[in-house]
Write a protein that binds this DNA or RNA. Structure first.
Ligand SMILES: [Mn+2]
Ligand SMILES: [Mn+2]
Ligand SMILES: [Zn+2]
Ligand SMILES: [Zn+2]
Lengths: 136, 136
DNA sequence: GCATTTACCGCAACTCGATTGCAAAGATTA
DNA sequence: TAATCTTTGCAATCGAGTTGCGGTAAATGC
C-alpha cells in the first residue's frame, strides 16, 4: 500500500495539508466517500477546499468518482497503475441496506459489445443489492 | 407498440391528463428524458405534477430511471414485460458529444459474478462514449 | 534575503435539480 | 347530493454542488 505522499508524487499533484488529510482519509476506508462524508469526518477542513481537492484528485487520476444513485457523488482512490481508461473499468457495489458503496476490483468486466460504430470511453457501472454483511 | 392507455392499464396506474401526455412524450422519443426535458417540452404542465407523475410511473414500473452522471436523472419507458428485476437489466449509453442517453436493450448483460454471499437486486449501468452518429 | 508571482485555502454566497406543503380542482364512492 | 379520496398547480424549500473573492502560504526571480 502506497502512502499519500507516494501517490501524490506519482500522480504529480503537489502535496498540501488539505490534500494529504483528504487522501489519507480516503485510503483509511474501504468504502467510497461523498463530499459530505469527508466534510463530517474532517470538521476543521473547509467544504470548498475538500471539493476542490477532490476535483484536483480526479483530474489527476488519484481518485475516481462513482454515481451510485444515492444523490451524492462518491469518491474512491484509484488502484495502483490505474489510468481511468476503459481497461481500468470495474463494477461498483451499492448495498441498499447499509448504504456502503465500494469498488469491486476483483470482479472481471466482460467485453461490452456496443452497437456498430459506437466508441467506448468510460463507464459508470453500479450494481445494487445486499453486501455479504447485510445478506443474512 | 402499446399505447399510453394500454400501458397504464397493464401497470394498473390510473389514467389522467398529465400522465397520458407525459407517457406519450416519453414514448415518442428514443432518448431518455430528464424532468427538465419534459418540462420544456410540455410548457403547460406543471413541473411538480410531472415530477410526481414520474415517481408514480417508476413505482409502478411504467418507466425506469437512469443516473448517467449528467447531474439530471433521466427516465425511459420500460420494455414490454419488464418488471425491473435483475433479468430486465440492460446497459445505458451516454454520448459524451451529443448528450443523448438511451437504453441498449439489444446488448446482452453477462452474468455478474458477485463475491460470495452478495445479492444482486438492481443495477445502474451506464456506458459512456460516442454514439454512431457522433463517431465519425 | 526580499519582492513578485502563483497556488491554495476558508468563508460566504449562490446555483439549480429535486422535493414538499398546501389549497383548489377533479374524480370516486356512499 | 354529500362525503371522501386523488390529482394538480403554485410557491416555497432543501441540499449537493459550485463559485467569487480576499487572505495566506508557497514558489520563483533577482
Ligand atoms: Mn471504483
Ligand atoms: Mn433503460
Ligand atoms: Zn450492506
Ligand atoms: Zn452522440
Amino acid at each position: 500500500m502506497q502512502t499519500e505522499e507516494e501517490i501524490l508524487k506519482i500522480k504529480k499533484v503537489k502535496n498540501t495539508a488539505v490534500r494529504t488529510v483528504v487522501l489519507r482519509h480516503l485510503l483509511s476506508l474501504e468504502k467510497a466517500q461523498s463530499l459530505k462524508d469527508i466534510e463530517n469526518a474532517l470538521p476543521y477542513t473547509d467544504r470548498s477546499s475538500i471539493f476542490r481537492t477532490l476535483k484536483t484528485f480526479e483530474e489527476n487520476k488519484v481518485i475516481h468518482s462513482i454515481e451510485d444513485g444515492s444523490g451524492m457523488t462518491k469518491y474512491a482512490v484509484c488502484a495502483e497503475g490505474c489510468n481511468c481508461d476503459p481497461k481500468d473499468l470495474h463494477y461498483h457495489f451499492y448495498c441498499t441496506n447499509c448504504d456502503k458503496t465500494f469498488c469491486l476490483f476483483d470482479v472481471p468486466i466482460p467485453n461490452i459489445q456496443l452497437p456498430k460504430n459506437f466508441k467506448l470511453q468510460q463507464a459508470n457501472m453500479v450494481v445494487k443489492g445486499l453486501c455479504d454483511n447485510c445478506n443474512r
